[in-house]
Amino acid sequence: MSTMSPATKPYEDMQLAFEAERRKTKTRNFIKGILFLLPSIILFSVFLFYPMMKTVYLSFFLTDASGATTVFVGLQNYIQLFTSSIFLKSFKSTFLFVLYIVPATIIISLFLAVLANEKLKGVGIFRTIFSSTMGISVAAASVFWLYLFNPTMGLLNEILGFLGMEGIGWLTDPAWALVAVSITTIWMNIGFTFLILLGGLQSIDQSLYESANIDGAGYFYKLRRITVPMLSPTLFFVLTVTIINAFQTFGQIDILTQGGPQNETNLIVYSIYREAFVNYQFGAASAQAVILFILILLMTALQFKFGEKKVHYQ
């Protein structure tokens, strides 16, 4: 059928023209989309993807003091880490640390947020106070706690002494150091967590509570059946962010304990820092960083898998 009927020919031509036009629009849209993404692609590549790849690459090598690769060792760095008692200890400390601070941070912040959400005179002052730790740098907060923890003239031990108890070597006693660092971190985290939770509370429709009041619901019934479920997306966000932050804690360790005593507070990020910039073992440090990355990724994935089911998105 080489000849076409004159009637269908122009119709098919038109179809072809339409098809070409459609393809052209598609290409143009694609280019436009890429252009919009380009700034973030460049930024992410330079500051995120490239260093990440470089870290993975470095973790397979031994390096000299300047960080240049010397010998390819394969998985040797990783194997050494998992047989090193120091790294395993810092692994354990990190998990303990997360366990100490995450529930405490969220429960205290939620409590404060619920309090600060009440319609009372002067509640704005309390909101400012409760969220103020957000505006304090890690260094300043650490120094401030350093004084509180001071074994002889620190306020905490003075209170203990006043109560007739023996002072605690907050930062020097291996049994207490991690707790002390945890308390500092909880205190520092509360500002941010409080603010986010308060925001979440304030976005809950007041008429839900009014309706519950008319229905005869009590305070704790409302808290359990309305506030917490309505807040669950915010709680989930806060949980995820707090866990990730806990895994990445560095500043307060460096100032308060420097990993000591007896490596009790040598959390993974601090251990990475020491390995890289004190011992100049960039390969081993990179291996630790990769492990931390996978750890956080796994934790977050698990949370989304199991936690998200209990979250009520609007």
Binding site: R225, P229, H312
Partner: peptide, 15 residues
């Protein structure tokens, strides 16, 4: 001892 219907219904979205 009264009931109320709100303009936006005030239904609990998670229930």
């Amino acid at each position: 001892d009264l009931s109320m219907v709100f303009q936006n219904y005030a239904l609990y979205p998670h229930m």
